[in-house]
Nucleic acid binder design. Sequence first.
DNA 1: TACGTGGCGGTAT
DNA 2: AATACCGCCACGT
Length: 116
Amino acid sequence: MKDSLKEQVYTFVRTIPQGKVVTYGTVARAIGRPNAARAVGSILKRNPDPFYKAVRGGLEGSRQQTPCHRVIRADRRIGQYSGSSGVKEQLLKKEGVKIEAGKVHPAHIQPASLYK
DNA sequence: TACGTGGCGGTAT
DNA sequence: AATACCGCCACGT
């Protein structure tokens, strides 16, 4: 398969189940680019199908969404997210992800070993 | 625990 | 073709 990196990233992120999160580094390793965590961030930044927009615009079910809010930093902080501050955290909490003191509860984080 | 730093890889211009 | 731009990471202090 010869998909571009960003297609692989989007495809992978779409497989992250509700209520679970992964880190940018995990995404990078899952697509075979262990050192490309930062690149993953810049790819998701230009996400063509933002989750919040899909929900608000009634796109649910009509096309693929990319729940980029389910991708967090290795130190369990939320990380950056284009859009007003707090949106990412609210989306996660709405899905049942517990966040305390700006850190995601470890139980929700899918370990990289799952995708190895 | 919190912050700074250098390195990093892919995209966009 | 070159370089600026970053939704990061690992490590040090």
